[in-house]
Write a protein that binds this DNA or RNA. Structure first.
Lengths: 157, 157
DNA sequence: ATCACTATTGCAACTTGGTTGCAATTTTGA
DNA sequence: TCAAAATTGCAACCAAGTTGCAATAGTGAT
């Protein structure tokens, strides 16, 4: 297998973060990089298992290292599950949508700065570091696939 | 101990939801009702232990019943922990703030409807059921208490 | 009041996701 | 080439949450 552009990008990312480029880290980063939606650790491990066989503990350690180095950020979905996505400048903080039916989590377009400011309010009794917006409902697929089988969600928590 | 206004409210809430008023359910609901911030199951259990001694499983079952009946709603805090709060009309959906230092989770003022609409966007390829906004940073207490001990957060994931 | 039926609770055992300690391996660099 | 440091893998552990089932409490009819 030859080196792709994506591989080069991965190596550069690790170099910039100042951490060693081990095969395990490359593999995990590649998966995150290539995904167009945030991934849970479980999903990352699933994808890994098809290729390499990296120990569970190692995956947890790599992900938390990436997070600590600011390479990735976490997104908490409803129900308490945590997902991860790249934290590059091309992929700035943005709202997410999750489907209550199939669980799929996807990225929406980023907010404007002024919009985000409005949300955070102008209070001065706390310091805002991060704003996370999570929209949930039914995705396009489930909306059509289950039109007749499922009543509208009553559970709007 | 005599019946307070709060006790009457609790009994009425259970009656309206169409579920039996057992001592355990009353105790859990009272804790949620009296709290001015969302509580995790762990926190609910802590508060319960000081008074009654309700089995872990029972607490889980009561909370999920309340949620299913729409008496409470859940709030997912960063890091994947789930909190619960009353879902009454006096306490509509609203943004939350959580402190990255002490972990305290508090409620902010509700969004206006038009504001929420803007957030959800006007796309028609998914159905929006719920919008959750989570703001994090440093709370007033931690902001002042730790002014000199802690550098500004680098970890803005 | 009694009996039978249903709902609720408690208990123990189990599953799952995540963590810890430590030994084995790899990497680095003198 | 060798020693020190970083990284990985393994096994054991921990805590949160779930399941099956027996015990208990409520409820309603007679």
């Amino acid at each position: 297998m030859k080196k792709t552009v994506s591989d080069l990008k991965i190596m550069e990312t690790l170099r910039l973060a100042g951490i060693a480029r081990t095969p395990q880290r490359m593999a995990v980063l590649k998966i995150l990089q290539d995904s167009n939606q945030p991934l849970s650790i479980g999903l990352i491990r699933e994808k890994l298992e098809t290729q390499t066989n990296i120990n569970k503990v190692t995956v947890y350690r790599i992900v938390s290292l990436f997070k600590q180095k600011g390479i990735i950020r976490d997104v908490s979905a409803s129900g308490g599950s945590v997902y991860f996505e790249m934290a590059t400048s091309e992929h700035p903080v943005h709202p997410h949508f999750s489907c209550n039916q199939c669980g799929m989590l996807s990225c929406l377009t980023p907010l404007t700065f002024s919009h985000a400011l409005q949300l955070a309010g102008s209070r001065d009794d706390y310091r805002v570091d991060h704003i996370e917006i999570h929209i949930s409902g039914l995705c396009n697929g489930c909306l059509h696939a289950t039109r007749l089988q499922n009543p509208p969600l009553k559970d709007r928590s």
